[in-house]
Amino acid sequence: MSAVNIRNIRKEDNTQVATLIRKVLVDLGAPKVGTAYADVTLDHMFENYDKPRAAYLVLEENGVILGCAGVAQLDNCKDNICELQKMYFLEEARGKGIGSQMLRQCLKKAKEFNFDKIYLETMPYMKAAQKLYAKMGFEYIDKPLGDTGHYSCPVYMVAKL
């Protein structure tokens, strides 16, 4: 891989990001209902994160987006907790340490936004992702926080910032 660039999402990235997320979910065999696949915000990611205490990052190589992830206040949660949202990478970007770079950038943003904790939901078979999350300080919890609407993602993890 040549040099990659992690940067904030731009409006013109919306289509490429939505296509990437849907492709990864289909490739991984994830349900289309109860996951990010069905989120109404998926086609408008720039606008969705264009607000205080939120950021969405893309991983770009030679003008092509290979991965993405974001942080924002956890929906329907009164506590000062953000959610790691929609972290996905195309197959050609996996296993190269880029996920660690992206996750570090998201944790840095969450700290800059002064959140106390960061929460995520994932699928049971996404073992490589869970291993990365655990390595970066996330711990498993037995029930969901907030209400993300992702009822098909029954693995919950949280980390102190």
Score class of each variant (00 low, 15 high):
residue 6 I to F: 15
residue 87 M to Q: 15
residue 139 E to V: 08
residue 82 C to K: 08
residue 142 D to K: 13
residue 139 E to R: 15
residue 48 N to S: 14
residue 24 V to Y: 00
residue 137 G to C: 14
residue 14 N to K: 05
residue 105 Q to M: 07
residue 138 F to L: 10
residue 29 G to Q: 05
residue 59 L to I: 14
residue 22 R to S: 11
residue 76 N to A: 11
residue 37 Y to H: 13
residue 101 Q to R: 10
residue 49 Y to R: 09
residue 4 V to D: 01
residue 149 G to L: 09
residue 140 Y to I: 06
residue 112 E to V: 04
residue 63 G to Y: 09
residue 44 H to K: 06
residue 1 M to R: 04
residue 151 Y to C: 10
residue 64 V to W: 01
residue 82 C to N: 07
residue 50 D to W: 03
residue 122 T to D: 09
residue 133 Y to L: 09
residue 11 K to L: 13
residue 18 A to F: 03
residue 110 A to Y: 14
residue 29 G to K: 04
residue 39 D to W: 05
residue 111 K to D: 08
residue 7 R to W: 03
residue 81 I to L: 09
residue 137 G to R: 14
residue 57 L to R: 03
residue 11 K to D: 00
residue 99 G to N: 13
residue 147 D to C: 12
residue 57 L to N: 01
residue 27 D to K: 05
residue 93 A to R: 08
residue 77 C to N: 13
residue 153 C to Q: 13
residue 6 I to S: 03
residue 26 V to D: 00
residue 101 Q to T: 05
residue 135 K to S: 09
residue 59 L to Y: 03
residue 102 M to P: 07
residue 149 G to N: 12
residue 145 L to V: 05
residue 92 E to D: 03
residue 65 I to E: 00
residue 155 V to Y: 12
residue 127 K to L: 13
residue 37 Y to W: 10
residue 62 N to D: 14
residue 43 D to N: 15
residue 9 I to M: 01
residue 123 M to Y: 15
residue 5 N to D: 01
residue 66 L to W: 00
residue 29 G to C: 06
residue 123 M to T: 09
residue 106 C to H: 04
residue 57 L to P: 01
residue 28 L to A: 11
residue 131 K to L: 13
residue 95 G to M: 05
residue 99 G to F: 09
residue 15 T to M: 04
residue 66 L to G: 01
residue 160 K to P: 02
residue 44 H to T: 02
residue 144 P to Q: 06
residue 130 Q to S: 09
residue 86 K to M: 11
residue 143 K to W: 00
residue 151 Y to W: 11
residue 87 M to Y: 07
residue 160 K to N: 08
residue 83 E to H: 07
residue 102 M to H: 11
residue 14 N to A: 00
residue 150 H to S: 08
residue 54 A to V: 02
residue 92 E to N: 02
residue 100 S to K: 14
residue 124 P to W: 04
residue 116 D to V: 05
residue 112 E to I: 13
residue 96 K to G: 00
residue 70 G to R: 13
residue 1 M to C: 03
residue 84 L to C: 11
residue 146 G to Q: 09
residue 25 L to G: 15
residue 3 A to L: 15
residue 69 A to T: 10
residue 44 H to P: 02
residue 85 Q to S: 07
residue 43 D to H: 14
residue 79 D to K: 15
residue 20 L to H: 02
residue 128 A to M: 08
residue 158 V to R: 03
residue 158 V to W: 05
residue 64 V to R: 06
residue 101 Q to S: 03
residue 2 S to M: 13
residue 50 D to T: 03
residue 56 Y to E: 01
residue 104 R to V: 12
residue 42 L to V: 03
residue 47 E to H: 05
residue 96 K to R: 14
residue 10 R to A: 03
residue 106 C to L: 07
residue 77 C to Q: 12
residue 62 N to R: 09
residue 123 M to D: 06
residue 6 I to L: 15
residue 66 L to N: 02
residue 98 I to L: 15
residue 87 M to K: 07
residue 104 R to T: 06
residue 12 E to R: 10
residue 100 S to V: 11
residue 99 G to M: 06
residue 117 K to S: 10
residue 114 N to D: 15
residue 147 D to N: 12
residue 158 V to N: 01
residue 72 A to H: 13
residue 116 D to W: 12
residue 120 L to K: 08
residue 123 M to H: 15
residue 113 F to N: 06
